[in-house]
């Protein structure tokens, strides 16, 4: 709902979330798959360098979603 209202105002917004069907059903336009519910952009169980790489990859997908022209709905997993 937050994503939609920001997009409605013309601000491209990427939602990083874990349960993709919720965001998809609710009608978010730009969606990127998160790591897990309690830590969407973190993986505390991984060694630091692996966590760093995973976090960066999610952020890169988010930037890609923001720079992509979306027709209906974009989901990057």
């Amino acid at each position: 709902m937050l994503e939609k209202e920001l997009e409605r105002a013309g601000i491209p917004t990427v939602q990083i979330c874990t349960i993709l069907p919720i965001a998809q059903t609710a009608g978010a336009n730009r969606i990127v798959k998160a790591v897990a519910i309690p830590h969407p952009v973190g993986a505390p169980e991984l060694p630091p360098d692996e966590e760093r790489a995973l976090r960066s990859s999610i952020l890169e997908k988010a930037l890609q979603a923001l720079q992509t022209s979306v027709e209906t709905q974009l989901t990057i997993e």
């Binding site: 937050l2 939602q15 979330c17 969407p40």
Partner: peptide, 24 residues
């Protein structure tokens, strides 16, 4: 919906171009 609309208005007033929204 109200939060989204109010946040959007504040972001626009501050010339924000894009948002990263994280959800749990």
């Amino acid at each position: 919906q109200r939060f989204g609309a109010e946040i959007a208005a504040k972001l626009r007033a501050q010339q924000v171009d894009a948002v990263i929204l994280t959800s749990t």
